[in-house]
Design a binder for these strands. Structure first.
Length: 1038
RNA sequence: GGGCCAUUAGCUCAGUUGGUUAGAGCACGGUCCUGAUAAGACCGGGGUCUGUGGUUCGAGUCCACAAUGGCCCA
């Protein structure tokens, strides 16, 4: 006996029972262990950032992460899945800052880093619990007993090891990075934070500045020869020509800016090499700017003295607006300027005794605004800084982290924005201001304190990833991306445009930077592990038990290997993307232990995250792996599109349009949610989330499946079907058809999953379940219902049983709960030897020999014919219940006719007609007395004439239908026997006699009694075909 | 400002190498079928395939440009 099931099922309730079963019987662990020794399939779990509650988009990625390893396990592979949690980073800190009401780093320092970080640690574990609950409930099988956690000492130590490897390869260096900086909070902002604070109505100065060409430089003895030697004849000749042209009159290069406070930091001017520049004479002086901009700045009418190209101007020198040496500000320069195409080295900064302010060429120079000459301040702009690094420009940085001027300028001590007017006034007095106005434009402000953000160069540690660009690109060529366009699109472009990774952060809650520097000689040492640290000479400040976080590592010092001075740790922490990108090694505490585990699980077969991770985890994984091992660490990756709300808007807490996964899980269950996420759109697409479609999925797919299953259980139990009996040899065409479709399905699903396409696989299953329910079972009902137990009945049971058991296995990776329920009842209930879970079985293998494509094609055509036949009946207004004499079917070929002939009984039955005839060719007009429907090359006509015999038979069917409805209304069991009473006119009497056997059989009537129904019976009165009829049914006991 | 992706019925999505009249499900109206079904069948309304050009005998499909939305980078 199978366990009886109701056709009214609560899926969420069922799922909770299945969860208990899995837990009690350790099914996940067994599913993994059963394959030990087989080939390994590795999923790298991208660690969720545990700084908030999981949302529906997290369910999405976890479902796709789950389905592939489940499939691979059933295909016989050993697929351990280690959970991971990303616990460090600015978002965690920001939440604690918010909780404590802090707005600046100073407040954290005052509060105490130890206390602050303790809050961070605690908050992270609070969210871990929520994540674990969600993960379990959606059926994402993952080893959460042994997760990697990025805050563990062991994890941090592996990160240290990884960084030390890069250090030893000379890939780690210190440079400057221009970042948006809030002068009030005293901290840099992440790009996400910057995006929060853009205002498009910011008022700023819009000023045109005159930079005086330093003709005196060229007049110094031998300079032109020097220039000729260093830069070539062209530049030297141009300078000579310019001096000849302009004589003693001053020449100015005109540049435009909206940030006058950056002018003291100006050390170069950039021009567009190919653009035309004009030299105009104004008030006994010459001005140079792009020809196309002359009119825009009011110089359209000024006398044009000469035209030159941008490249002529390159290497021209000009006088500083503010000579840094006059104002007590140092000038530095990278010792070994980074040349194009050359790897960066450990840059040393050298203080200079003189300055050099040149004109350079830049492809970033726009002729759309300004003057075509761009003011460059390497300390205050990213483009400026990059140009400075490449061309070896001077670096002047007279502003402190509070945004106030240092040195002894007239405006020193002022906040930069307040200094703007003073700077302009000063320049104006010296005749260096050409024009001054204001502009309204978009500018970023701090989202916390509304201070204008300043772009600053700050000291930062870099990893020289661009040096390994070729390896990164070659490695990517070996990765399978789904969808494919990411490979050479978004991800490939990112690699092609690779820039060095600025990986240090001036924060508190993170993996501490494992670089110490000597306070005496400036020597740097990178420490690659705890034992290495403990072995350092004259080690001080290490407190046991060791916690590898700030502030506990901050006080650890040791003796410099070069000068015996005191080595102190650099105060920064690592970008948390370094943490997660190092997970291939750090999850195992490699190379300190578990080296075998690492070897076996590297590289991963599969990873899966959303598309925003191209610059995040996908990149950090790829970069670290390539730099450490020279190869990619993942082979296949599904890159998911984002989930938007029902209106196509991004989900955000602020908008209040966030979908709570628990609402879905509680209303419709995990399987419905999973099926929706898998099949509703391809993995890589953006998708709008719709709870109503989750409900639809539950009704249309899961309930159809469930009802097919419960239909089988009901009848199999009545007939005591034993699946262990040998399969019936007398399969009908209907059976052979569904077996054909089943084996096609297995092949399709297997193939799609093998190609990381669960969506196509799921949609195929959906089609099959529909066909199984609405054709196979619908057409087979009578076979299950009939009273005699013959070979045909057994064939139907065997076939449906096989389909359902196979479906449970095919569905196991998709809807693991309902698959488990169906499998356990169909298999385990009747076979104590069977494996206890569908997830411990092998994935079905398609048997091509069982696929009869001719039969499949013929059945498809038969379905079309039935569809047209029903349409024809509807047109004539004749119910399907009324039998008709014949149907005429027009087909295209003899082969089609033969195919349909084979299935004639199905067509007769479905259309309720007595015979089918086939015609070829066009309509002849002989179809009078027929109702007709056509589609494409086909037409189907049903004879509309109803003889008295047919009419009587129709009434008999009508009576059966009423009796069945009454049985149900009376609350009878499906297998209860009844006595039927009836009263009516002649026609009723005739029908009840003539069709007595048929009616008795269909309604489980022992006898038909022509008498008024007794009071104890269930009775109703109807009008059938213009006759009054009274029917009554009474249950027979015993 | 740059790059990538998407845009097909009210909603969610199919639509093969360009080739008859662009499909399905949901929702809506009507009729039918049914002792597995919360389902199903048939009919109906609902589409300038985002727009504009181009290539072609022929474009939802290929190309260019634009719009809208999303993501990433500036």
């Amino acid at each position: 006996m199978f366990r009886p099931v109701s056709n009214k099922v609560s899926l969420p309730q069922l799922e909770n029972q299945v969860l208990s079963f899995w837990k009690d019987h350790h099914i996940f662990e067994k599913s993994v262990e059963a394959r030990r020794g087989a080939g390994q399939f590795t999923l790298y779990e991208g660690p969720p950032t545990a700084n908030g509650s999981p949302g529906i988009h997290h369910v999405l990625s976890r479902v796709f992460k789950d389905i592939i390893p489940r499939y691979k396990t059933m295909k016989g592979l050993y697929a351990p899945r280690k959970a991971g949690w990303d616990t460090h980073g600015l978002p965690v800190e920001l939440e604690i800052e918010k909780m404590l009401g802090f707005t600046s780093k100073a407040q954290i320092e005052d509060y105490g880093v130890a206390r602050f970080n303790a809050h961070c640690r605690e908050s992270v574990f609070r969210y871990l619990k929520e994540w674990e609950a969600m993960t379990e409930r959606i059926g994402f099988w993952l080893d959460m007993e042994h997760p990697y956690i990025t805050l563990d000492n062991s994890y941090i130590e592996s990160c240290w090891w990884a960084l030390k490897q890069l250090w030893d390869k000379g890939l780690v260096y210190q440079g400057y990075k221009v970042t948006p900086h809030c002068p009030r909070c005293g901290t840099s902002l992440s790009s996400h934070e910057v995006a929060l604070g853009y205002r498009d109505d910011a008022q700023d100065p819009s000023v045109y500045i005159k930079f005086k060409v330093a003709k005196s430089v060229y007049k110094s003895p031998g300079f032109l020869e020097k220039l000729r030697k260093g830069y070539g004849d062209r530049e030297a000749d141009f300078v000579k020509w310019l001096i000849d042209l302009t004589g003693e009159k001053p020449v100015y290069l005109v540049a435009w800016t909206t940030t006058p406070w950056t002018l003291p930091g100006n050390t170069a001017l950039a021009v567009a090499a190919d653009a035309e520049y004009g030299i105009v004479e104004v008030d006994e002086a010459y001005l140079i700017l792009a020809s196309v901009r002359l009119g825009k700045v009011g110089l359209g009418d000024a006398p044009l003295v000469a035209k030159v190209t941008g490249s002529d101007l390159v290497e021209l020198r000009y006088e500083p607006l503010f000579n840094p040496f006059d104002f007590g500000v140092t000038v530095t320069r990278m010792d070994t300027p980074e040349k194009e195409g050359q790897p960066p080295s450990n840059v040393k900064w050298k203080q200079l005794a003189s300055f050099n302010y040149p004109v350079i060429a830049g492809d970033f120079v726009s002729l759309e605004d300004g003057t075509g000459i761009v003011h460059m301040a390497p300390a205050y702009g990213e483009v400026d800084y990059d140009a400075g690094a490449r061309k070896g420009l001077d670096f002047v940085h007279p502003v402190d982290l509070q945004g106030e001027f240092t040195g002894n300028y007239p405006f020193s001590g002022r906040f930069v924005k307040d200094a703007d007017p003073l700077i302009l006034e000063d320049l104006g007095e010296r005749g260096l201001l050409y024009r001054s106005g204001t502009i309204t434009h978009t500018y970023p402000f701090c989202w916390r304190c509304e201070a204008p953000l300043l772009y600053y160069a700050k000291r930062t540690w870099y990893i020289g990833t661009s040096r390994e660009k070729e390896a990164l690109v070659l490695g990517n060529a070996k990765i399978n991306w789904y969808p494919e366009h990411i490979k050479y699109g978004r991800f490939g472009d990112w690699l092609e445009n690779n820039v060095d990774w600025a990986f240090s952060r001036e924060r508190y809650w993170g993996t501490p930077l494992n670089i110490w520097s000597c306070s005496s000689c400036g020597n740097y040492e990178c420490v690659g592990g705890i034992d290495e640290l403990k072995a350092k000479p004259d080690l001080k400040g290490l407190v046991e038990p060791l916690d590898l976080h700030r502030p506990f590592v901050d006080g650890i010092t040791f003796a410099c290997s070069k000068c015996s001075g005191e080595m102190k740790r650099q105060t920064e922490v690592l970008d948390c993307w370094f943490d997660s990108g190092a997970m291939p090694v750090a999850q195992w505490h490699y190379p300190f232990e578990n080296c075998d585990d690492f070897d076996r699980s590297f590289p991963a077969d599969f990873i899966c995250e959303a598309v925003d991770q191209t610059r995040g985890w996908f990149y950090s994984l790829h970069a670290i792996s390539t730099l450490l091992f020279g190869r990619p660490c993942f082979e296949n990756v599904i890159c998911l599109g984002h989930i938007l709300d029902a209106e196509g808007e991004k989900m955000s807490k602020a908008k209040g349009n966030v979908v709570d996964p628990w609402a879905m899980l509680e209303s419709y269950g995990a399987d419905a949610t999973r099926w929706y996420l898998i099949t509703s759109s391809p993995a890589g697409n953006v998708r709008r989330f719709s709870g109503s479609i989750v409900a639809e999925v539950m009704r249309n797919f899961l309930f159809t499946l469930w009802n097919t299953y419960s239909f089988f259980i009901i009848y199999a139990n009545i007939d005591q079907f034993d699946p262990k009996l040998p399969a019936s040899p007398s399969l009908t065409d209907l059976d052979r058809w569904v077996m054909s479709r089943l084996n096609e399905l297995i092949a399709d699903v297997d193939n799609a999953l093998d190609n990381y396409d669960p969506t196509t696989a799921g949609r195929r299953i959906e089609t099959f379940v529909d066909e199984l329910s609405n054709w196979y079972v619908r057409r087979s009902r009578r076979r299950f219902w009939k009273s005699q137990s013959d070979a045909d009945k057994l064939a139907a049971y065997t076939t449906l049983y096989h389909c359902l058991v196979t479906l449970s296995k095919l569905l196991a990776p998709f809807t693991p709960f309902v698959a488990e329920e169906i499998y356990r009842n169909l298999v385990c209930s009747v076979d104590s030897e069977a494996v206890e879970s569908v997830h411990l079985t092998d994935f079905p293998i398609a048997d091509r020999a069982q696929v009869d494509t001719q039969l499949v094609d013929a059945t498809r055509l038969a379905m079309t014919v039935c569809s047209l036949g029903r349409a024809a009946r509807a047109k004539a207004g004749i119910k399907v219940r009324q039998p008709l004499s014949r149907v005429l079917v027009k087909v295209r070929s003899a082969a089609e006719r033969d195919g349909l002939q084979r299935l004639a009984s199905q067509i007769l039955d479905e259309l309720n007609v007595k015979e089918v005839e086939f015609a070829e060719g066009e309509l002849t007009g002989d179809e009078r007395g027929y109702a007709l429907a056509e589609e494409g090359d086909y037409w189907v006509a049903v004879a509309t004439e109803i003889s008295s015999e047919l009419k009587a038979e129709g009434i008999a069917r009508e009576v059966v239908r009423r009796l069945q409805t009454m049985r149900r209304s009376a609350g009878l069991d499906i297998a209860d026997y009844i006595v039927t009473y009836y009263q009516g006119g002649d026609i009723v009497q005739q029908v009840m006699t003539e069709f007595a056997d048929y009616i008795n059989q269909e309604t489980l009537s022992r006898e038909l009694v022509s008498a008024p129904p007794p009071d104890s019976s269930y009775a109703e009165k109807y009008r059938i075909s213009d006759s009054e009829i009274v029917l009554g049914i009474q249950k027979v006991t015993g």
